[in-house]
Design a protein around this nucleic acid. Structure first.
Lengths: 220, 220
DNA sequence: TCCCTGTTGATACTGAGTACCGTACTAGCA
DNA sequence: TGCTAGTACGGTACTCAGTATCAACAGGGA
C-alpha cells in the first residue's frame, strides 16, 4: 500500500513522514501511521529516529559533522573563511533540497513541537561554531564572549537568508548569503582594525608620503 | 506530608518540583509525584503548567511581558538604552533568584529535555527583541538583518554573563553585563558612524579649524 | 554445521498530555 | 436567605510517544 520502495527502510520512513505530515498534519499522524505507510514496524522507526520530531531533520547529524570537519580543517588565520564556508554548507544543503525544505518550513511554522526541535538543532550549530571560534580567540580580551557573538551572528545571518529563500522572497540565496556575511564580518572587526584614509593635498612625491606614513604609524 | 503550604497551589507545585527534581532527578520524578507532594491533583498541575518542563521556568511569561513592555515604552532614538535595560531585567531576575537559579542551571545542564525548553525560551526573548528592533530599523538598508543580529548579540551576551555568574565565575554580574553591552553596541555601530580624529599641527585658531571641518564634511 | 552479528518485528509497559465531568467555593444580587 | 455565574479543583478514562525485552531471520565465515 505504500509507494514504490526507495530502497532503504530509513528513506521510506522519511518520505512517508513528510507525505503524511503534509497531508494530515503532524498531530494527527501517529508513528504507527508512518511505520505502516513505510511498510516497516514501529520499532524500526524509533531505531532510526529518536523521536517523532527527528524524522523531519534526517540529515541533521551529518550537517553538524560537516560543519565540525570544515572548522577543524582551519586555523586562527583563516577563521573568517572557515565559518563562512561552514555556514554555506548548510545553506547549500537546504537550498538543494528544494520542495522538501519548503514542506519542512510549513510544518515548522505551524507545529510548536517541530519549531522547538529546529531551534534546538540551530543551537547545536551555534555551539559548534562557538567552540571552534573560542579556541581560536581564547587569548584575546573577552575572547569567549566575542567568539559566542560571532557564532551567533553567523547563524542568525544564515537563518535570515535561508528563511527569506524558503518564503520565496529571494531567488539568489547564495548572493544574499555572501552579502550577509560581509555585514557579519564587518561587525566583528574592531574599530582598531579598521583603516581610514584621510586625504590632504601635498606637493611631496609618493615615496616621501609613504615614508611619512610609516614613521607616523611607528610612533604609535 | 508536604511542607508548610506557601499559600497558593501554584507556588507549592513549583517548590515541590524543584525539590523533587533536585533530589531524585527529572526523569525519575513523575507529575503525579509533584502533585502529591504539593497536595493537589495531577489535573491542577497541567492547568498551571503546560508541561512537566515548564514548571522549571514559572516566571517565563512574566519576564517576556516585562521585556515587551520595556521595549514598547521606547522609540528608535533610545533603542540602545531600551534593549540594554530590557535585557538587564532578565539578568536581575535570575540573579535575584539565587539558589533556585543555580538548581535550575544544574538541572538544565544534565537533562536534555530541559535544555531544549530553555533554548526555546531564549529564542522567544530573541524574537521579542528582534520584532521591536526590526520595526525601528525597517527603513535602513538590511534593517531586518541588522535587527536580528543586534537581538541575537544582546541575548548571547546576556546569557554569557548570566552563565558565568551561575557557574560562580564572577561575583559582579551587573558590571560584567554593562561591559558586555558596550561590546555589543560597539559592534552594532557601522564604520560610517565611527568618528576618527586626525590631529595635525596648525597655527589657525579654533574657529577657523571648525569652519574648515564643517566645510570638509559638507563636501562629502 | 555451528556460530556470530546485525536488522527487524511483536509485545508489553510507563508516563505525559488531553478531554470530560462533577464538585466546592466565592461573589454578587435580589 | 436563596439563586446564579464564574472559577479553581479533583477524578476518571483515554491516546500515544518512547522504552525495554525477546524472538525470528538473514548472511557470512570458519
Amino acid at each position: 500500500m505504500p509507494d514504490l520502495p526507495p530502497s532503504t527502510a530509513r528513506d521510506r520512513l522519511v518520505t512517508s513522514a513528510f507525505e503524511l505530515f503534509d497531508a494530515q498534519g503532524f498531530d494527527d499522524t501517529t508513528v504507527d501511521d508512518i511505520a505502516n505507510h513505510a511498510g516497516v514496524g514501529r520499532t524500526t522507526f524509533f531505531r532510526h529516529f529518536g523521536s517523532k520530531e527527528a524524522v523531519i531533520f534526517p540529515e541533521h547529524e551529518k550537517l553538524l559533522a560537516g560543519i565540525q570537519a570544515r572548522l577543524e580543517a582551519s586555523d586562527p588565520d583563516t577563521r573568517d573563511l572557515a565559518v563562512v564556508e561552514a555556514a554555506r554548507l548548510v545553506l547549500r544543503y537546504y537550498v538543494g533540497e528544494g520542495d522538501q525544505a519548503r514542506i519542512r518550513y510549513r510544518l515548522i511554522s505551524s507545529v510548536p513541537a517541530l519549531r522547538a526541535r529546529e531551534i534546538a538543532g540551530i543551537r547545536q550549530y551555534e555551539k559548534t561554531f562557538a567552540r571552534a571560534l573560542s579556541a581560536w580567540m581564547a587569548d584575546s580580551p573577552d575572547g569567549a564572549l566575542r567568539a559566542e557573538l560571532l557564532a551567533a551572528a553567523v547563524v542568525t545571518a544564515h537563518n535570515h537568508v535561508l528563511r527569506r529563500w524558503l518564503r520565496g522572497e529571494t531567488k539568489t540565496p547564495e548572493d544574499d548569503f555572501a552579502h550577509a556575511m560581509t555585514i557579519v564580518l564587518d561587525r566583528d572587526r574592531s574599530p582598531a582594525e579598521q583603516t581610514a584614509v584621510v586625504v590632504l593635498r601635498t606637493d611631496a612625491d609618493t615615496e616621501a608620503v609613504s615614508a611619512a606614513v610609516t614613521k607616523a604609524l611607528r610612533t604609535l
